[in-house]
């Protein structure tokens, strides 16, 4: 519960949601926000949510995600969204900067998780 109620988590999740919505309603926003901000926010939000669920399952409040798992899940996301999804949907495109942003967000989450949550 500590994670879901944390302002950093809420703000980043809301930002991702707002950007996604404005993309849907085609609001005029700079292109770099559309292309890159959500990719950067994706991993911290997803990892935080996963950690919150795991803590709920294990009934502990002081477990943290190890680096191997962070990198593993990030690699999965990179493969899934940048290699697998472009093959079946035209909405997705492969971009090396996106992959970099995924890893940047993941490393950021890993380094600040003990201070925040």
């Amino acid at each position: 519960m500590k994670i879901i109620k944390h302002p950093v988590f809420i703000i980043s999740a809301l930002m991702a949601l707002i950007i996604y919505m404005s993309q849907r309603f085609q609001l005029p926003l700079p292109n770099w926000i559309y292309f890159y901000v959500n990719n950067f926010l994706c991993m911290p939000v997803v990892l935080g949510l996963c950690l919150a669920i795991i803590r709920r399952l294990k009934k502990t409040e002081n477990s943290y995600v190890p680096l191997v798992v962070v990198l593993g899940l990030t690699t999965y996301f990179a493969i899934y969204f940048e290699w697998f999804m472009p093959q079946i949907s035209t909405r997705y495109t492969t971009d090396i900067i996106d992959i970099g942003l995924y890893y940047l967000g993941a490393i950021l989450f890993f380094s600040i998780q003990k201070r925040l949550f």
């Binding site: 950690l51 294990k58 477990s63 191997v68 899940l73």
Partner: peptide
Amino acid sequence: IWMAFMAIGMFIA
């Protein structure tokens, strides 16, 4: 338990 973590992450993806 991190296997469950990965599974949840994959589900979210």
